[in-house]
C-alpha cells in the first residue's frame, strides 16, 4: 500500500520585482506513489527541484515558494488524507510522529551552547508529554541510541566536541526517536568523509529495518543510491523523468538523461572513456517548450519540441517519460 502519493503536484517560486513577475517551476506536474516499508531515492542535478519537492510534501511551503496545484495524500491508519486540507495546528501533531524531515546540513542544527541531552529534551517535550523524566524520557532515549549503535556518552557532549559524522548521526537519531512512518532526508551524506558517510547510510538502513517505515532519500550521489535504495526516481527540471527499481535504473536505464547519468559514473578498475551529459541544464524560470531535456538530447525528434512526454509504465515498475520509449510512438 502507498504511504504517500501526489497527483499533478506543482509548486513554483514566484518572484515579483515591480512590474516583472518570474516563475521558477521547481516542481512541475509530479505524480508519484511511494510505498510502505521502502527506501525511495530521488536523484538529479542540483537545481532540478529535488529539495523543493521534499519541502512541498512535508508541507513546508513558505513564500516565495507557493504550491500552485495538485494534491498530496498521506496514508494515516489505512485512510488517505489530503494534507493541504489539514490545518497547521493539526499538522504539527503529525510532524516528527508521522513524518520527520532531515534538512540539508542538519548536522549544524544542534544548539551549540547546550548539551546534546538538552537538545533531545527540547524536541521531545514539544511533541510528547513527560510525566516521569526517568521513565518517559531517559529510558526510551537510551534505548533508542543503543539500538542505533550510538554511544550514550554523546548525550553529555556539546555539539562541537563531536565530529561531523557523529553530529549527523545524532540528528538522524533525534529525528527518528518518535518512530515516524515517513522519514524525509535531504542530502544526509554530503559534506561527510567516506567513512562517516558509510556510517550514516548504515544508520538509515538500520532504522528502516527496525521501524519498518519509509525513507525518502534525496542525494545526487549515485553510489549512495546504489547502496541503500529500493527504488529510484530521476528528476530533471522539476519533473520525474524515470522511476524504477534500483537494479533496473543501473542496468537498464530507459530515459536518455538517465542513460548518460549512469554511463558517466566512474568505477574503480575501469579506465575506459566516460562521456558526460552534453549541454547545460535548463533554467527553471525559462523552460524550453516540449520535453525539458530536448535541447541536450541526441535522439531529439520533432514531437519532443512540441509536447511534454508523460511518465508512463513501460515494464513492471519501470516508468519513463520519453517519446522514444512510449508506446504511442511505436504504433
Amino acid at each position: 500500500m502507498d504511504i504517500l502519493k501526489t497527483e499533478n503536484l506543482k509548486s513554483y517560486y514566484i518572484l515579483e520585482m515591480g512590474e516583472t513577475k518570474k516563475e521558477v517551476k521547481a516542481v512541475n506536474d509530479v505524480t508519484i506513489n511511494i510505498h510502505e516499508d521502502e527506501i525511495y531515492g530521488i536523484a538529479g542535478e542540483s537545481g532540478c527541484g529535488k529539495s523543493t519537492f521534499l519541502k512541498t510534501i512535508c508541507k513546508l511551503v513558505e513564500p516565495p515558494l507557493r504550491m500552485i496545484g495538485g494534491t498530496i495524500y498521506y496514508q494515516i491508519d489505512g485512510k488517505y488524507v489530503e494534507i493541504t486540507e489539514i490545518k497547521e495546528e493539526d499538522f504539527r501533531k503529525l510532524r516528527w510522529k508521522y513524518i520527520s524531515y532531515i534538512p540539508q546540513g542538519s548536522m549544524n542544527a544542534l544548539n551549540p551552547i547546550i548539551r546534546i541531552r538538552e537538545s533531545f529534551k527540547d524536541f521531545f517535550t514539544a511533541h510528547q508529554k513527560i510525566e516521569n523524566e526517568e521513565r518517559d524520557f531517559e529510558e526510551p532515549l537510551k534505548k533508542h541510541l543503543s539500538a542505533l549503535g550510538l554511544p550514550v556518552r554523546v548525550l553529555k557532549s556539546y555539539p562541537h566536541q563531536l565530529s561531523g559524522g557523529m553530529r549527523q548521526r545524532t540528528t538522524i537519531a533525534l529525528a527518528t526517536i518518535l518512530k515516524p512512518r515517513i522519514i524525509v532526508a535531504d542530502e544526509p551524506t554530503t559534506a561527510l568523509d567516506v567513512v562517516a558517510q558509510r556510517a550514516v547510510i548504515q544508520l538509515l538502513k538500520d532504522i528502516q529495518k527496525l521501524q519498518k517505515n519509509t525513507i525518502i532519500l534525496v542525494t545526487h550521489d549515485m553510489a549512495v543510491h546504489a547502496n541503500i535504495t529500493d527504488r529510484i526516481g530521476i528528476m530533471y527540471a522539476g519533473m520525474f523523468v524515470e522511476e524504477a527499481r534500483t537494479d533496473d535504473i543501473f542496468e537498464n536505464p530507459l530515459h536518455p538523461y538517465t542513460k548518460f547519468l549512469i554511463a558517466s559514473l566512474p568505477k574503480m578498475g575501469d579506465k575506459t572513456y566516460k562521456p558526460s551529459v552534453p549541454g547545460v541544464p535548463p533554467s527553471l524560470s525559462n523552460l524550453p517548450p516540449g520535453c525539458p531535456f530536448h535541447p541536450r538530447c541526441p535522439y531529439v525528434m520533432d514531437i519532443c519540441k512540441k509536447e511534454i512526454p508523460q511518465l508512463v509504465e513501460l515494464n513492471t515498475e519501470h516508468k519513463s517519460a520519453c517519446f522514444l520509449n512510449s508506446k504511442e510512438r511505436v504504433e
Partner: peptide, 24 residues
C-alpha cells in the same frame, strides 16, 4: 580501509560489513 568505505555505483556491490567510528 579507505577503498573499502567508498560506495560503488553498482547495486550488486552493496556493503555487507559494518563500520564503527570511535576515535576522535
Amino acid at each position: 580501509m579507505l577503498k573499502e568505505s567508498i560506495p560503488e555505483a553498482d547495486p550488486k556491490k552493496k556493503w555487507t560489513e559494518r563500520v564503527s567510528i570511535t576515535e576522535l
